[in-house]
């Protein structure tokens, strides 16, 4: 059975647009996609943090100043924050009942993670490109 990978639904069910999930299957797919990307990114991150445990600011600046490190760190932040807010969204949708409470929780969640994600990326850029 051939399926649209981005939607994980049969073409017929996609055209009909029925079911409570609506576009939910694409979120399911993005959650898996980000999960796959996070496996190597976190193995790299844990190995890197192990070499930086002394907390020496200068050696840490030198580490983040390397092109490859800042690139992988930005990728990690973007993918991690996207994965995290998707996961929390599922939990909110499961346990927060009532449309008003659910919608406002989701708005706060999305904006908070966008804010922190952009703040983190900007910090990496400032550190790696020099202040």
């Amino acid at each position: 059975m051939l399926r649209d990978k981005a939607h994980m639904r049969t073409p017929l069910s996609h055209v009909r647009g029925l079911g409570s999930a609506k576009e939910g299957t694409s979120l399911w797919w993005v959650q898996r996609l980000t999960a796959v990307a996070l496996v190597p990114l976190f193995l790299w991150f844990v190995a890197s943090v192990l070499t930086l445990t002394t907390g020496d600011y200068e050696s840490w600046r030198a580490w983040i100043g390397e092109f490859g490190n800042s690139l992988l760190l930005i990728l990690l932040i973007v993918v991690l924050y996207h994965h995290a807010q998707l996961g929390l969204q599922v939990i909110i949708e499961d346990y927060v009942h009532g449309e008003a409470a659910k919608t406002s929780s989701l708005i706060v969640l999305k904006l908070a993670y966008l804010f922190c994600g952009v703040g983190s990326v900007l910090s990496v850029l400032k550190l790696s490109l020099g202040s």
Binding site: Y57, I77, L80, L88, I91, C116, S123, L127
Partner: peptide, 26 residues
Amino acid sequence: GVVLALGALLLTYWLTSAAYGPEAFA
């Protein structure tokens, strides 16, 4: 997953304090 989503905010704290300067990083 919830612990990690909250733990990710520590990463933001760590990076923004590093960007703020050596004192904040320390």
